[in-house]
């Protein structure tokens, strides 16, 4: 049963990682959410998430710029 819960948590982490990275980009995080992150997320997940987040950030600004100049 407890193993199942752990499995479920692991599946749910993509969104969790995305949320943690998005908040990191703003530089804000609620303490309870942070503690939750620290307990469940692995550093590798955050690094991969951060790189993907960085690429998405660059792409989104590029799209915005294209929209502005078009």
């Amino acid at each position: 049963m407890s193993n199942d819960t752990v499995e479920k948590q692991k599946v749910a982490t993509v969104w969790q990682v995305a949320k943690a990275v998005m908040f990191a980009f703003m530089g804000i995080r609620k303490k309870s959410d942070l503690e939750n992150d620290a307990a469940t997320l692995k550093p590798t997940q955050l690094i991969v998430g951060g790189i993907i987040g960085g690429i998405l950030f660059v792409i989104s600004i590029m799209l915005l710029v294209r929209l502005v100049v078009s």
Binding site: A24, I28, G50, G54, V58
Partner: peptide, 19 residues
Amino acid sequence: FGYSSMVYATASIAILSCV
């Protein structure tokens, strides 16, 4: 105040500084 947001903000500044 906001220790964790300080950590996150530092990481964020570091990433943004590269682009």
